[in-house]
Write a protein that binds this DNA or RNA. Structure first.
Lengths: 236, 236
DNA sequence: TAAATAAGTTAGGCTAATCTAACAAATTAA
DNA sequence: TTAATTTGTTAGATTAGCCTAACTTATTTA
């Protein structure tokens, strides 16, 4: 099925919104906000996508991706993350520059291109932001991660991904001396506004709750795709 | 100026048609055929492109690109040929597969991406079909080439490019044992239908006039960008 | 040079993706 | 449990890019 640029973006947004919220069913308004269009526009498109069997949706009900819709959305995510990896690894883009260009590249239609690119990059499992890259079959490595704001005071952890891919956030992360796989010690937390003092490579910084919500971390015992053996670990 | 996919294609087609015909001024019908749309559609778009100052055009007159239009069209050609080179050199696409994917990739908007890609490929001057790649300034290496059908019987030459980039033609070229920079001896030519017998690496083949029209060659004395010192050479 | 043919234009219509404004249903809160 | 608020839908309009059919201008040829 050859979808338009726009249709692909709706499917991708649906997957992204449900993933971010942790709830599979998505509302019209929510989707409209995510796509920077009006709810009426989403409504029109929903009819078309339902017609094509890509979403499950009844009037005034919640929206979910069909199996086929999810497969396509996952494939677009795969392309996006492969391109990000290419830009970062091969073309020396910085991690805050890759997202916008990948937003365009993800819509190139060529199965062969995707497979060849995957091979060229040596079948990477994670992109420059720490997000898992679905393989040819749509499977991806799951990490049992939590956000920095969930880490207890006095605890330490390792940053494995970022939630927000915007360049402004990523530049801020770099400014704090933080990068993928860096150790973070949580020194203190303000009761009133949840401001955290963290230490990275000996550098202390104060960061907001919002910042901490967008940093994904694992404890030192966690392993990718496995239940953590550390009984202290709150991941599951 | 941010142009749509379609507007970019019109500018590119304009440059291509005028280049292929050797005449700068292009007609509405000609352009319509090249873009696989109807003349009426071209007419609408021409008004828009004129409005934007990208073409020079008066009612019932011929169409030419403005300086700005030509600059943009050249930039799209640059992107197309860089991507073809990438696909061929880095991702192991065959030369008959690169064109269609590059048709999509040429519309990605990112100056940085183009410059980085150029550097990654070590600033190539020719693409996999032997066509020159415009540099950052829009300059390109000019070759004084002619077509295989212009070579005299008994003469020999070197293939430097193909005119037709379609996969069906390119597969045929490979089948005849021919590739870029191969030597060709023209053994005989049929008076009646201009069928040529050629020899490539010891392999003899009969090819049509149409085939020979789509193969670009140089004589052994020709050098890129220079007037050929061989007085027998008919290039100029 | 007048008729035939080719090339180019205009008018009006279609679809995809968007919008605004008005309305309807569902949810939340008083 | 009714009223207020939020969420979702419909109707009608707009723009880009395309079409067909009818027309006009330019060019070719008898």
């Amino acid at each position: 099925m050859q979808l338009s640029y726009t249709e692909e973006n709706y499917l991708k947004a649906l997957l992204k919104v449900s993933f971010d919220s942790g709830i599979e069913a998505v509302g019209t308004n929510e989707l409209a906000i995510s796509l920077f269009v009006k709810p009426a526009t989403v409504n029109d498109m929903l009819k078309k996508l339902k017609e094509k069997g890509l979403v499950d949706y009844e009037k005034y009900g919640k929206i979910t991706l069909s199996a086929e819709g999810k497969k396509i959305a996952t494939y677009i995510i795969r392309k996006h993350r492969l391109w990000e990896t290419f830009l970062y690894e091969k073309l020396e883009f910085s991690w805050d520059e890759v997202h916008d260009v990948a937003e365009q590249l993800e819509h190139i239609h060529s199965q062969k291109l995707v497979d060849k690119l995957d091979k060229f990059l040596d079948f990477p499992e994670f992109d420059p932001h720490g997000d898992p890259i679905p393989n040819r079959l749509g499977e991806l490595k799951v990490q049992f991660k939590k956000t920095l704001s969930e880490v207890a005071v006095g605890g330490s952890c390792k940053m494995v991904a970022v939630k927000d891919n915007s360049s402004s956030f990523l530049q801020y992360v770099v400014q704090v001396g933080l990068g993928l796989n860096n150790e973070i010690n949580v020194l203190s937390k303000q009761e009133y506004d949840a401001i955290l003092v963290i230490e990275v490579n000996g550098l202390k910084s104060s960061v907001s709750q919002k910042f901490a919500d967008n940093i994904f971390v694992v404890c030192h015992h966690c392993e990718v795709g496995k239940i953590c053996p550390n009984t202290q670990c709150t991941f599951s």
